[in-house]
């Protein structure tokens, strides 16, 4: 899979990834002579970032941190590249003077320690080897203010027994919204639903798969549904109750994305 961010410091590098979920102060956090993480409160305490790609949300703490980054390079124990959610000046200054590639504006929840990644600081891209990107559509149906959730059967390949929207794989060449309409007809027997909203795709990582969910919200005139083999139960619920169900990963995020998404005024699809 390829993640797109913003290239802040130029250059390229390829190495195994080490991911921390906490902001880092390079001064007091990383030993400039060995590249080891020395902050006992860090979730990667004791690990070495030398020769690795180091991902952490943001910099923090001392403004001398820039010199620690420079020192890592001089002492030959620097990370090959740095990945951030949002850049912070002390780290940015440090990587620029040291020539370490840095890409920010990334969703670090999609990365795992041990991933082999190829970072391109010129283009702001990160290629994660061996992780396959799979696109799916997920549709939420609305009737009289309630939202339809379906419980996945034991016959489906993934996430059996969990609650979900109406989903299906997006094949190459498929128009997402058309695929969504086809799946609705197949899975709940409703034709001609009215498209209300389309959300920005939501990504989530599950081992070596990157799921990219394209969320839609449709209105249907009747609450009657006819389930096929993929589901064994359905419920119409107020949207506030979604968190109470055991759902497939990031269903709530997909729903939130669709709520904030583009409104379709014409309603004809």
């Amino acid at each position: 899979m390829i993640l797109k961010g913003r290239g802040l410091s130029k250059g390229t590098g390829e190495a195994n990834l080490i991911v921390s979920s906490e902001p880092v102060s390079f001064l007091g956090g990383v030993d400039a002579k060995s590249g080891r993480i020395i902050d006992e409160r860090s979730d990667v305490f004791g690990e070495s970032i030398a020769g690795k790609v180091f991902a952490f949300p943001s910099g923090k703490g001392s403004t001398v941190g820039s010199y620690v980054l420079y020192g890592l390079v001089i002492n030959d124990c620097a990370p090959v590249a740095i990945l951030n959610e949002r850049s912070e000046v002390v780290v940015t200054v440090g990587v620029i003077i040291s020539g370490i590639p840095l890409v920010d504006c990334l969703d670090l929840s999609l990365l795992r320690t041990g991933d082999m990644v190829e970072v391109n600081g010129d283009e702001g891209s990160v290629n994660v080897e061996g992780v396959e990107e799979v696109h799916v559509v997920t549709s939420f149906l609305e009737n009289e203010g309630k939202i339809l959730l379906l419980k996945r059967s034991e016959l489906v390949g993934t996430y059996q027994g969990m609650w979900a929207g109406i989903s299906g794989y997006l094949e190459k060449g498929d128009e997402a919204v058309e695929r969504a309409v086809i799946e609705i007809e197949e899975e709940v027997g409703i034709s001609s639903p009215r498209l209300l909203k389309e959300g920005k795709p939501v990504s989530s990582r599950d081992e070596n798969t990157l799921w990219v969910v394209h969320p839609f919200l449709f209105h249907v005139d009747s609450p009657k549904v006819k389930l096929d083999w993929e589901h064994k139960e359905h419920k119409w619920i107020p949207q506030s109750q979604i968190p109470e169900f055991e759902t497939v990963p990031r269903l709530i995020k997909a729903f939130e994305a669709v709520v904030q998404g583009l409104r379709h005024e014409d309603g004809e699809r």
């Binding site: 703490g61 001392s62 403004t63 001398v64 941190g65 820039s66 010199y67 420079y70 912070e88 000046v89 002390v90 780290v91 940015t92 200054v93 440090g94 003077i97």
Partner: peptide
């Protein structure tokens, strides 16, 4: 200004305007 504690003091208590500079950018 660099020096994280002084940056906060300068912005907050003095009302001067600085980003949190790294040592080399200051």
């Amino acid at each position: 200004w660099a020096e994280s504690s002084a940056v906060v003091f300068a912005n907050s208590v003095l009302g001067a305007r600085t980003n949190r500079e790294g040592g080399p950018s200051a």
